[in-house]
Design a binder for these strands. Structure first.
Lengths: 213, 213
DNA sequence: AGGCATTTGTGTACAGTGTACACATTCTCT
DNA sequence: AGAGAATGTGTACACTGTACACAAATGCCT
């Protein structure tokens, strides 16, 4: 006697909150398995609904993935905010600026290592959707990752640690260094590197950015 | 009247060089479309062969993708070698070392921008296959990207531009910075940035590495 | 040369995916 | 109460990877 693997689990014809349920399922799928793992039919299955029901709330798989990616990006921003909130105020503007920049980098890396699936999903291509640098606002400050990083860099300029001639576009330099380390460690040839070594490299990368910017 | 879209195109029962043909098709698929675009059935179609024939030469799609990835990695190494070959010898060890390190970075970035699909494929996860840092030897020197970068860093130490205390693991720092820029520009939020600006950022990232290492 | 094992390509089949289209049910608004 | 919109269902199709049995060519051993 086979047990029906898909009990109705729901008596009402209407689901009630299907969009949110599909998005939640999609996020969970992305969490383990990354972007390729967010498969529309599985999301509907978890929501206890027939595959095509998804099309009432998303234009298609790509659209669902985009929604997942946006929340993943917000979580990246959130991780950066959280780390930023931990830097204690200092009398020295220089100390504060450096700590802030470091917090940005550490928050980014921590999230990448803690949630590699979501991190990869956050920075995934989706042919059309342009991801215009202003995506993924954090719940705390309401700023996106680019703005958070920019704020820290402004502090570096104010503190005299970064010549203002080099301020323009500095976001991309700092971002590249930290992003590269994240990618190489979670999906690149440095996977399986012991965590302690990765953390050490993270510190050194941030040192390099501070010094080389 | 429909034309058969799949003419036999081959009279012999045996293909003769199917493995190479499948690999070539896979590379072409990866070139436009990245790792997800290398689909086994399409490769067999281009080789003029039935889908299952592929299983005589590859364990499955994952195995084919791995082969494509390995050649993509070799091409990365080749691009670095090519750029390295262009630095002209100098009486000053410092000048030569800096030029070499820059060539490594420029070669890497050039390839990423010229062949984004292959570049993404080169650094793609494949659950098991560990990609042990020693993959992808270039045809010229026979060295892999990691060794090429290491060589340039050794020159930096010899020239007195990099304290030997900081030599250990320096590959990962330099690599992270350049890799991050490549990723952000080809599949990240900096796509659609004008090429001139990207090139400028490439120079600045390499400056940052030189100075901050 | 003849016979036979091995290699390589074919045919058929199945489960899983995204999604188009018609239909059914429920909600909402007048 | 009834019309129209919103939402979920059923059926269907093309596509994917891949398992299994079969067929044809190759090569090797006597």
């Amino acid at each position: 006697m086979r047990i029906d693997p898909d009990p109705p689990a729901r008596s009402t014809y209407r689901h009630g909150d299907l969009r949110r349920a599909l998005l939640a399922a999609g996020i969970e799928l992305a969490r383990n398995g990354g972007p390729d793992a967010v498969v529309l039919r599985e999301a509907t299955r978890q929501a206890g609904v027939v595959p095509n029901a998804a099309y009432r709330h998303f234009a298609g798989r790509a659209d669902l993935l985009k929604a997942v990616r946006d929340t993943a990006l917000s979580q990246v921003a959130g991780a950066m905010e959280a780390e930023l909130a931990r830097v204690k105020p200092s009398r020295s503007a220089a100390v504060f600026a450096r700590a802030s920049l470091r917090a940005i980098g550490v928050g980014y890396l921590k999230f990448a290592l803690a949630e590699p699936g979501l991190f990869r999903t956050a920075f995934t291509v989706t042919e059309d959707s342009e991801l215009p640098l202003g995506s993924g606002r954090g719940v705390g400050t309401g700023k996106n990752p680019f703005q958070l990083l920019g704020g820290a860099l402004d502090l570096m300029v104010s503190a005299g640690l970064l010549p203002h001639q080099r301020r323009d576009g500095a976001e991309f330099l700092a971002w590249s260094a930290v992003h590269g380390l994240a990618m190489l460690t979670i999906e690149g040839p440095m996977r399986a590197m012991p965590r302690a070594m990765i953390d050490r490299l993270g510190d050194r990368v941030i040192d390099m950015v501070e010094k080389g910017l």
